[in-house]
């Protein structure tokens, strides 16, 4: 992996002028073509790390390379291989969608005609051709994210950095963005996103790093990380004529199930069975069959799998709160600097 890594970060540290240590000795790498995510709560250091990789912020110590170029020594080379879409979307509200993209193309070295052609292509890609002449300021939240995504793609970057690409969007717009990102990744673009949403990380990312207080606390595929936390639970209610019969059935079932090789544990409470297995979905039919064999019928079955929130909980003792509106450590530092938080 380290050979064809497109993003390499070693012992990265970022201390803001106020003394806040936003990134505290972070090391990771992302392979070419990978879909990688930084999952963590507000203030975890996600945006700061991304802004350093995107050459928008200087680092305090450590090393960071994107596309083989050092972010401090070769910022313009880094800029030419990466696209960056921000959380606080940086759009030109007074320009039309098309003009905005054309200027982006020109700034990435295209001539006017090339930039026009590219803008048409991208507007089509993000399904904004119909509103291309409208001012960006009049776009909806979802449209703004899409035009921003298009702008980040103008120069066919190898890596796409996305800082919370769907925060604040309605579910429908979110799904639209997810689909675009999956398509792009299938075409070979490496995607590195930050998110506070477990579902997003789980749905999109092949590999994630869970970050908290400036440090990576866990790293792996979502499936492995969740498996690490614990088993799936198959929860079943035993059926019967009366409570007595159900209770007896549950006792019998519990004893029988705990002897099965793929069952890690069984908990019986009245006539409810909680069965710990590695893969709940795969085990459920087998469990039902085994119960049927001993004459126990089940009236209700549900499955409970560990979530990435459980992973986060295990590593930090807290849960990710992603219901808070906006803001990250960079935003907070900026607001403080601008005197906006001294109200």
């Amino acid at each position: 992996m380290s050979n064809d890594a497109i993003i390499q970060v070693e012992n990265l540290v970022k201390v803001y002028p106020g003394g806040t240590k936003a990134v505290d000795d972070v090391t990771f790498s992302v392979g070419e073509g990978e879909f990688f995510g930084f999952l963590g709560p507000n203030g975890a250091g996600k945006s700061t790390t991304m802004k350093i990789l995107g050459t928008l912020l200087g680092l305090t110590s450590g090393k960071a390379r994107v596309g083989g170029y050092d972010v401090t020594r070769d910022p313009n080379k880094v800029r030419s291989v990466m696209g960056f879409a921000m959380q606080e979307v940086g759009l030109d509200d007074l320009a039309s969608g098309r003009d905005f993209l054309v200027l982006q193309g020109i700034l990435y070295g295209m001539n006017r005609r090339e930039a026009m052609a590219r803008a048409t292509e991208l507007l089509d890609l993000v399904a904004l051709s119909d509103v291309a002449q409208r001012k960006v300021g009049a776009y909806s939240g979802g449209m703004r994210r899409r035009i921003d995504l298009a702008a980040a793609l103008v120069h066919n970057p190898r890596v796409l950095f996305l800082d919370e690409p769907t925060t604040g969007l309605d579910p429908q717009s979110r799904l639209a963005i997810w689909e675009h990102l999956e398509t792009l990744n299938e075409r070979g673009i490496t995607v590195f996103l930050t998110t506070q949403m477990m579902e997003e990380a789980d749905h999109l990312c092949q590999r994630i790093a869970i970050v908290d207080r400036g440090q990576i606390v866990a790293e792996g595929t979502p499936t492995d990380l969740k498996a690490e936390v614990g088993d799936d639970l198959v929860i079943m209610s035993v059926a019967g004529e009366n409570d007595q019969e159900r209770r007896l059935g549950a006792e019998k079932a519990g004893e029988m199930l705990s002897n099965l090789s793929y069952v890690d544990g069984v908990n019986v409470a009245d006539y409810d069975l909680s069965v710990s297995v590695k893969k709940g979905g795969a085990a459920a039919p087998d469990l039902l069959r085994a119960l049927g064999d001993v004459g126990v019928t089940v009236s209700n079955l549900s499955l409970s799998s560990p979530t990435l929130d459980d992973v986060f909980l295990k590593h930090t003792g807290r849960t990710i709160r992603h219901d808070e509106a906006g803001g990250d450590e960079y935003g907070q530092a900026m607001r403080q600097w601008m005197g906006l938080s001294r109200r």
């Binding site: 979307v89 990435y108 702008a151």
Partner: peptide, 13 residues
């Protein structure tokens, strides 16, 4: 404030 300045800085210019 709008972040467009950052967008310009992100371009290799």
């Amino acid at each position: 404030m709008s972040g467009y300045f950052d967008k310009l800085l992100l371009a290799p210019i």
